[in-house]
Design a protein around this nucleic acid. Structure first.
Lengths: 330, 330
DNA sequence: GCACACTGGGAAACCGCTTTCCGGGAGGTC
DNA sequence: GACCTCCCGGAAAGCGGTTTCCCAGTGTGC
C-alpha cells in the first residue's frame, strides 16, 4: 500500500506539504514542490486512504440511503434521484435494503451512524407501529445528536426533514376523477394496513367517496406487491372500478383479470398510484397518480444536507393521469 | 461524539479492555468488567467509529458495486442479488451508477480503491473500446495490487473473476427456437454496437441463422433502452420475427407496433432477452431468454470474496422461454 | 535601515480505534 | 514451596492522514 509518507519521501518534502498538495488545503504550496509531489504521487500510484481522511477530518463524504426494496421500481427511481443529487455534490452513496423489515431499518441507521456518514435518507413508507417508530426515532436522534443529518421520504413521523407525497390528497383526487366518470361501486386493493403509505392512500380514496355521498368501497387488504394485487383482485366482486394503492399491485390486478377473462376497462376499470416509468407500456395503459419520484429523491438529499435547524416538511402533490385502464360509465 | 475512551473512563477500565469487549477480539474479558463496559456503552450511546476501525484494522467491511443504471430492472436485479449476498456476509454496500459512461466506471474504481473497500463488483456490459478497457483494467490492477478483490458481471475482459452470461449462445438458442417455428425473415434490434452484450447477443443470433441456412436478418442499431427499441421497431420492414437484444427494448418495440396497429404475434413475432420480472405481465407475454439475474449478482460477490489466485470465469446459461409474443408460422 | 506583516515549509499533536507487549496473580505440577 | 503456565488487565505503539504551531525568508512602508 502506498501511503502519503511514501509520496512525501520520494518527493523529498514533509508529510504536511504532500498532504496540502494532494488532498486539498487552504494553504499554498510553491510550484516546484507541488510539481514534485504530484509526480511522485503519480509514479507511485498513490490513492489517499479515505478512512484515514475521514478520521482526521472528522467528516466523511458518503451518505446513506435506506430503501425497502431496490428491485421495486418505485424505490429504484427514488434512489436514483437521490444518487444523482449526491454525485452532484461529490458524495458517495451507501445503499441499504431492508426488504421491508423495520428492524433492519433501525439497524441500518445504527450502522450508518457508526460509519459517520454525512446524511441518512430513509426512503419509503413508515409503518403504523408506535413502538418501532419510537425506536427508529431514538436511533435517528442519537445519530443526529452526533452531528449527522437525516431526511425521509414518506411520512413526517420522525422529526426530520421530510418529503411527503400527498398520498391522501392524491388518492382523493383520483377518487373524484373516477367518480366523475360515473363509477359508484368501487373496490380498493388496500395493501397492508400497517404500511402508512398504503393506509393513507386508501383512506384518502375512501373519504373522498364518502364526501361525494357514494357507497363505501370494498376494501381488500394484502401485500404491497404485484402478487398482493393479483390475489386481492380475486375479491373485487361487482365493483366497476378498482383502485390499487400502487402501480405494481395494479399490474398484478390486470394480470388476474386477464386470466379470468374479465376485460379492462370494459368490464372493470383499474387505477394505480405512482406512475412507474417501467410500467407505462402496460396494456391497457394504467390510470394512476403521478409522483415525481426522481425529483423527490433528489429533494430529500438537498433537505438533509441543508443546514436548517427546524425540520422541513415538503408536501409533494400527485397528478391524476387518466389512461385507458378506466372507462366512463354512460 | 462519544468515543471508546469515554466508555472506558466511565466503566473505569482501560481503552484496551473496552475495545475487546465492544468490538470483538480473540481475547477474553472477565465477566464483571465486561458487564461494566457494556453498561457504560449503553448508557452513553456509544457507536464505534468505523473509519477509525477501518484504519486500525487495515480492512473495511464495505464492498462497492458499480452499475450502469439502477432504474433499469436488469441492474436492479443484479445489484439486489449482490446486496443480499453482501448482507449475508455482514458487509455494507456502496453503490455507484455510471449512467452508461465508461469514464465514470473508471472513476468509481479509483474512488472505491481510496475507500479501501473489500471488493469491487463491476456490473454490466463492457464496451468495445480497447483504450477505455485498458484504462479500466489498469485502475483495477492498481486496486488489486493493494489487496483489493474484484469481480465483474459481463464479459471476461478485465482479468478478474467474471460471471459471464451466455449471450452469444443464448441468442443462438433463441434463434433456433424461433426458426423452428417456421420463421425465416428476421430483424434484430441490435442496440449499440459498442456495447459488448448487445453485440454478442446480436452476433449469436445472426450466426445461428446462418448455420441454419436462413437469410441474413436486418440488423437495426440504436440505444439499449426502451426508446431505442421503440424507434428501431419502425424499421423492421417485412420481417415476421423480431429479436430485441433485451427485454426493455422489446417492450419498446411492442409499444411501437401497438401504436401502428401491427398485431403481435399475429403480424409480427417479438422476442427479448433477460426475462425481467417486472415485465412478465406485459401483453402479449414476452418470449425471451431467462437469465438468473439475482443469482448472478450473488455469485459475482462470492467469486470476488473467494481467495482464489486465478481469475475464475463462470459461464451462465440462458434458458429460452417461449411465450405469446411469438407464434408459429404454419 | 528597521520594524512588520506575510508567505510557504516542516515538526508534531491529534483523530479513535486495534493490537502487541508487558506484568501480576491464580492455578497446576513435582 | 519453587517453578511454570495460563489468564486477563493496561500501557503504548501504531494505522494514515490533517492541521496547528513555529520558524525562516521576503517583501513592504516609512
Amino acid at each position: 500500500m502506498v501511503t502519503l509518507e511514501d509520496v512525501a519521501k520520494q518527493a523529498g518534502v514533509s508529510l504536511a506539504t504532500a498532504s496540502r498538495v494532494l488532498n486539498g488545503s487552504t494553504r499554498q504550496v510553491g510550484a516546484d514542490l507541488r510539481a514534485r509531489v504530484e509526480r511522485a504521487a503519480y509514479e507511485l500510484g498513490y490513492r489517499a486512504n479515505i478512512a484515514a481522511q475521514t478520521l482526521a477530518r472528522g467528516a466523511s463524504n458518503v451518505i446513506g440511503i435506506v430503501v425497502h426494496d431496490l428491485t421495486d421500481p418505485y424505490f429504484a427511481a427514488l434512489a436514483d434521484g437521490a444518487m444523482r443529487a449526491a454525485a452532484g455534490e461529490g458524495l458517495l452513496v451507501m445503499v441499504g435494503t431492508t426488504h421491508r423489515d423495520p428492524e433492519q431499518e433501525i439497524a441500518y441507521v445504527a450502522t450508518l451512524n457508526a460509519q459517520r456518514v454525512r446524511a441518512v435518507l430513509l426512503v419509503g413508507s413508515r409503518v403504523a407501529d408506535p413502538e418501532v417508530t419510537e425506536r427508529l426515532r431514538a436511533e435517528l436522534d442519537r445519530y443526529r445528536a452526533s452531528g449527522g443529518r437525516a431526511a425521509c421520504v414518506g411520512q413526517d413521523l420522525l422529526g426530520v426533514d421530510t418529503v411527503a407525497p400527498a398520498n391522501h390528497e392524491g388518492a382523493a383526487a383520483l377518487a373524484r376523477s373516477l367518480a366523475g366518470l360515473g363509477h359508484t361501486r368501487f373496490a380498493v386493493l388496500a395493501g397492508p394496513p400497517r404500511l402508512m403509505t398504503a393506509r393513507d392512500r386508501c383512506a384518502g380514496f375512501v373519504s373522498a367517496l364518502a364526501e361525494l355521498g357514494l357507497p363505501e368501497p370494498r376494501v381488500i387488504e394484502g401485500p404491497f406487491d404485484r402478487d398482493g394485487g393479483y390475489r386481492a383482485a380475486q375479491e373485487t366482486g361487482d365493483a366497476t372500478c378498482v383502485f390499487a394503492v400502487n402501480d405494481v399491485m395494479a399490474v398484478g390486478a390486470l394480470a388476474a383479470y386477464r386470466e379470468r377473462g374479465i376485460r379492462v376497462p370494459d368490464d372493470v376499470s383499474v387505477a394505480g398510484f405512482d406512475d412507474i416509468a417501467t410500467l407505462r407500456d402496460q396494456v391497457p395503459a394504467l390510470t394512476t397518480v403521478r409522483l415525481p419520484l426522481q425529483d423527490m429523491g433528489a429533494r430529500a438529499l438537498e433537505l438533509a444536507l441543508a443546514a436548517d435547524e427546524e425540520p422541513t416538511v415538503e408536501q409533494v402533490p400527485g397528478e391524476v393521469v387518466l389512461r385507458e385502464s378506466v372507462r366512463a360509465l354512460r
